[in-house]
Structure formats: structure tokens, C-alpha cells
Amino acid sequence: MSAVLEQIFQVGFLAAIIRIATPLAFATLGEMFSERAGVLNLGIEGIMLLSAMTGFTATSLSGSLWLGVLVAVLTGMLMGALHALFTAALGLSQHVCGIGVTLFSSGLAYFLYRLIFGQQSVPPNIKGFETLPIPVLSDIPVLGPAVFNQFSLVYMAMLAIPLAAFVLYRTPWGLSVRMVGENPRAADSAGVSVIATRFQAVILGGALMGLAGAFLSMAQFNAFTFGVVSGRGWVAIALVVFGRWDPWRSAGAALLFAFVDALQLRMQASGLGHIPYEAFLMLPFIFTIVAMAVMSRNAVAPSALLKPFRREER
């Protein structure tokens, strides 16, 4: 047991948790904004993949990492706008559109990647982000090197969590988002444009999903592979539910999942795992499904989620 505890409190292990949690935190916050406005975005898996690809490509061609991040964010926003067009403006069924956006974006990502880079035996890579120690803070024992000697995108994720909470709960726009997600009819009567607010929330969500994709291909793996996202978008969908549509809780859920994932990787590496690692990877999905059943008594999901808003329908 103490051996396990020692493993857990190693600097490298803590740092790994933070790194695994970062793309999940971005993606989860992105999905949360979208869902709080009443739009389920199942396009997340494909949006992350396409953003990872465009960001990687932009960096690979220009040599600039931040240009790559910008391109990834813009890609996410564009695909968010597409999903919003179908779901918020045209009122089409959100889950089917989301699957459509995922199929379309992943197909496009594969297609363009193969077109630009061809079929190479060794996938091209870039010199990705390097860790950026924060003065003073990174000198704190254990916690310092684990938390404050990270990629700049990690710090952005750390700032994004309180910022998301502030925007959602403390700004007029955040109030509009919550209103159109809970009671679009009332929001409309109060003069809030339901469609415009949903557009904005889904596009903001897309930007965050883009950051998640950028992190994967430009900081974590420094290459684009077809499995670069491998279900992390679906994990984010689960984490939003598990985090009860709250920025803090969702980010906490991302951290918890990252802990389980990092633990699983350690156990695999140390060869002491008698439990198949897949069992750990299944956990967030099973927990979420169970949590949904338990939580269903006190409805916490945005009430207008999955419901299109059409002004003329009364």
C-alpha cells in the first residue's frame, strides 16, 4: 500500500494528472457552455479532431505554435457555428446533427491530413510546446514542479475554469445563457435573443474544444494521428453530466478522471496491474450513467436541453 502511495505522490505522477486533465477541462467547459444554453453538442469528438489537425498543420507549415493554437480555436468556432446553425437557427434535432458534425469533421480531418502530408511511414511531428516554469511558484516542493512547471496551455486551462464560472454566474451574458437553457420562452419575453445567445454559447464552446484539440496535437503528442482524440470528446460529454453542468464540478470531474487514467497508465507500466486497464477507462462512462440515474430525481440538467426553440410555436 505504501508503495502505491509513494507512486501517487511522485512529482511526475501529479504532473501527468494535470496534463491528462487539461484537454478534458477545455473540452468539458466547452460542452458545458453549449449545454447550459440548451444545445447538446455531440460534434465535440469530431471538432476536437479537426482542430487538432488544423492546429498541427498550421504550426507545421508556419513554425509558429501560437498561430497553430489560433487556427485550432478558429476551427472550433467555425464548427461550433455550423452546429449552432443547424440546431439553434434551423431547430434540427441536436443529437443527430451532433453525430453529423462529428462524422463530417473527422472525415474532413482525415482527408485534409492525408492530402497535405501524404502517406508517410513515420508520421510528421512538430516541436511542440515546452514547459514554462512559473518563477517562485515552481519552487514549492512537489506541488511546484508538478503544477507550475507545465505548458502554457495548462495554465490557460487553470485560468479558464474560474473565468468560465465567473462568465456563467456573474455576467449578464452568462445569465442570458442560463436563461435560454432553462426557459427560452421566458428569456425571449425578457428581450433576450434565444438564437443569438445559443449561437454565441455554442461558438464559445467550439473555441474551447479547439483548445482541447490543439493541446493534444501540439503539446501532448506533438503529432497528429487518427487516434489523437480517441474518445476524449465522449469523455467530456460524460464529465459535463457528472459535473452537473457546473464549471467547478466539471473541471473537478476532469481532474478525477485524469487521476484514474494516470493511475491506470502507471499500473500498466509497472506491470503490477492484474486488473485490465480497460476497466479503468470504462469507469467514467459507467459512473456517469449511474450518476444520471441517481441525479434524475433532482433534475439538474438544463431544462431546455435538446429542445429546439421556435418563436412562433406556442
Binding site: L40, L42, V241
Partner: peptide, 17 residues
């Protein structure tokens, strides 16, 4: 419980199984 999300998440469970 919303069937969209639960049926989607089950895909990952079965895949890992």
C-alpha cells in the same frame, strides 16, 4: 435518464470491454 447520452456512453463501455 436521457437516452441520447446514456446510449452514446455505453458505446465506449462496450468498446473497452
Amino acid at each position: 435518464v436521457d437516452d441520447v447520452v446514456s446510449s452514446l456512453l455505453l458505446n465506449s463501455v462496450i468498446y473497452y470491454a
